[in-house]
Amino acid sequence: MDAVILQFLNGLDKGSAYALIALGLTLIFGTLGVVNFAHGALFMIGAFCAVTMSRLLSLSHQVVDETRTDFLGNPMKVDVPYVNDWFGEATGALIIDWAVPISILLAIPVMLLVGIVMERGLIKHFYKRPHADQILVTFGLAIVLQEIIKQVYGANPIPTPAPEAFRGSLDFGVMLGFDPYTITYPYWRLVYFAFSVIIIGAVFAFLQFTTFGMVVRAGMADRETVGLLGIDIDRRFTLMFGLAAIVAGLAGVMYTPINSPNYHMGMDFLVLSFVVVVVGGMGSLPGAVAAGFLLGILQSFASMNWIKDIIPGIDQIIIYLVAILILLTRPRGLLGRKGVMEE
């Protein structure tokens, strides 16, 4: 029983990342009808926003500390971050420690800008072109973005730790009455899960309860009629692209403590996110979220030892296997709308 709960929890954080990326992909597909292969790159850019922010925050200058001496007997030079000068030592240290959550402030405008530039500059010209062309051009863009990041930040993963308060693990088993240390779960993964639930809730609330969201939903259902009503639907869809980019970027920012960001993390997630979208149903937002969590948890269960003993290698292929089965038996995906990219 404890193993089942543990795997369930383990599946949640991976599922959260899948769900967030798939949500963005579906937003783009549902509004603009574009298959965006560069979405993984947006996730990666988000992660590197966190890297940039933590580097910016720890920018420092050298100060000669007269009280201490180095091994040669000269006065020691100490690196003092600028934030320490501005906010005092304690606050400065706290700010540096909290670099990852603070990066959200940087990631939102950056991702919005990247998203809008991408849509206006490139994707706009591909609405009328076939899906294969859209896949190809965004695939090319993904390569370019990935290479730029590689040139700027190097090819090695960059460790970006979580704030001190969230390192360590929660002994979840004790709360449920199991022995101590049977079910432990890192705090940051809980934070990630909670964060993704909040983001997903916010996106749905935005679409459901605001006028803007209502217009966007109307546009998703029938773009032409909304246009005929005198609403500039293109502008709103562009903003939705920016929103999708923000969702992917924030997913990336918060993911950095779980996995050190490297330049190909986007591509690694992209393939799986596409599978998630297809399983959930192209163009269905709840489907994308549900499928994201479902596949994350499924993958985590498949990597349990006794299952691997029965079917070796199942943890590697389970997601693809499920995707193939779903595509063949239920072409529109789990929660897909009727008639969306369905023959």
Binding site: V35, I135, V275, Q316, I317, I324, L328
Partner: peptide, 23 residues
């Protein structure tokens, strides 16, 4: 299936073969 679904299906099969061959 055709279109994007075909692409994803072939991708899934290939990744499956890769994972199986690798492990």
């Amino acid at each position: 299936r055709s279109g994007i679904y075909f692409s994803i299906l072939t991708l899934a099969f290939a990744q499956m073969s890769f994972a199986l061959a690798y492990s």
